[in-house]
Amino acid sequence: MALDEPPPASDDESMTSGAVPAGTPLPAEAELLAGAERLPCGRPLGRAWQQARDAGRAPDPHSSHCPHCRGAIEGLTALDRATRALRGEEQPDGHRLATRIINAVRTEVRLGPMLFLDDPDHDLRIAESAAAKVLRRAADTVPGIRAASCRIIASESGDATHVVTITVAATLDRPLRGRAEALRGAVLHSAEHVLGLAVTAVNVEINAVLDLSPVPSDDRFELRDR
């Protein structure tokens, strides 16, 4: 029911009794809809709402300046808008609802474990997915290397240090050992200077050969955006 619609008949006396002082009668409709609750400024909530809704009446100096009345009116306006929107909908769309819920859960799951940043109090954390993205990007800056995946595991010592395992594709135009060292350097630098994450070891796995031909610009964008 929208707020400016007639209320359903009710026998509940408690809704209309008690809080309204004698001599200041409220419109019964507003009282039923918004309640006789008093705002901190002393004005009944129903009266504030009625005042705001009645466009033909002269502006009320109190409502226009009182933060309590303004806040209440804004909240009721939003509730009214939402109620109208719900009422205007046809049949509930279960598929869309399910999709939204699945997406919300997926987003949470994709975060992965939380890793402690390099701080002695151990109360600053970063999601593994967020840290891995930064380290993969660092790996991509090494010529002839393209990162495929990155896992970051907390050390068993419990001292907020981590071991990184990064899997890459590499070109074969230079010795792989040198490439791996450059990759380690890039990852360690990024872990310290971009993240502030303590990394004690970087394991490098090369599981594919990277073609020497130039990567199309669209593909480069996709790789960079992981």
Binding site: R81, L86, L97
Partner: peptide, 12 residues
């Protein structure tokens, strides 16, 4: 989840 399940939020 509350946001996903709530059409009211969209309207608001």
């Amino acid at each position: 989840l509350a946001l996903a399940a709530s059409r009211v939020v969209e309207a608001v």
